[in-house]
Computed example of a mutant assay.
Amino acid sequence: MKKYLKRTNAVDFIAITRAKEKLWNLLAGHMILLEGGTTRLHCSLGRETTHAECAFLFLDKEHGTARIEPYALEV
């Protein structure tokens, strides 16, 4: 493998920044479907702080409404 891998001390800061942005975009707003798609857990992470907000969303398809219940999360 050594003959195929090139040793370099160069750091690709642009690639690191892109990877960091992709990770933040994934984590900044994340929703998990629960219970057959009618219940969801939504989490949002603050970009400049360690603040996180989570809430359960309960969808009532029959009446076309949704109930949101905040979920206390300590980080």
Results as ranks from 00 to 15, higher is better:
68 I>G: 13
19 A>Q: 06
41 L>H: 07
60 D>Y: 00
18 R>S: 12
63 H>D: 09
40 R>A: 10
24 W>I: 00
42 H>S: 12
18 R>Q: 13
44 S>Q: 11
16 I>L: 10
8 T>W: 05
73 L>E: 14
24 W>A: 02
4 Y>L: 06
18 R>E: 14
52 A>M: 15
43 C>Q: 13
52 A>S: 13
50 T>I: 15
58 F>G: 02
68 I>Y: 11
29 G>M: 02
75 V>T: 15
32 I>R: 02
13 F>T: 12
66 A>D: 09
65 T>C: 08
55 A>F: 10
6 K>G: 00
30 H>Q: 09
19 A>M: 11
10 A>D: 01
55 A>P: 08
21 E>M: 07
48 E>F: 14
9 N>I: 14
56 F>E: 12
59 L>Q: 07
54 C>V: 12
35 E>G: 01
61 K>Q: 04
66 A>F: 11
49 T>V: 09
58 F>E: 05
52 A>Y: 12
71 Y>Q: 15
38 T>D: 14
68 I>S: 15
1 M>G: 00
70 P>Q: 06
16 I>F: 06
6 K>P: 00
4 Y>W: 04
43 C>W: 02
45 L>R: 10
9 N>E: 10
43 C>M: 10
44 S>E: 11
68 I>A: 15
48 E>G: 14
22 K>Q: 11
14 I>G: 00
9 N>C: 04
63 H>L: 10
72 A>T: 15
39 T>Y: 06
19 A>K: 11
6 K>S: 09
56 F>P: 03
30 H>L: 07
41 L>Y: 11
24 W>M: 04
30 H>V: 03
31 M>H: 05
16 I>Q: 08
57 L>T: 07
18 R>F: 07
27 L>F: 04
13 F>S: 00
36 G>S: 09
34 L>M: 07
23 L>I: 02
5 L>A: 11
21 E>T: 01
25 N>L: 01
37 G>L: 04
47 R>Q: 11
51 H>C: 07
15 A>F: 01
48 E>H: 14
56 F>Q: 07
45 L>Q: 13
20 K>L: 05
33 L>N: 06
57 L>F: 14
17 T>W: 12
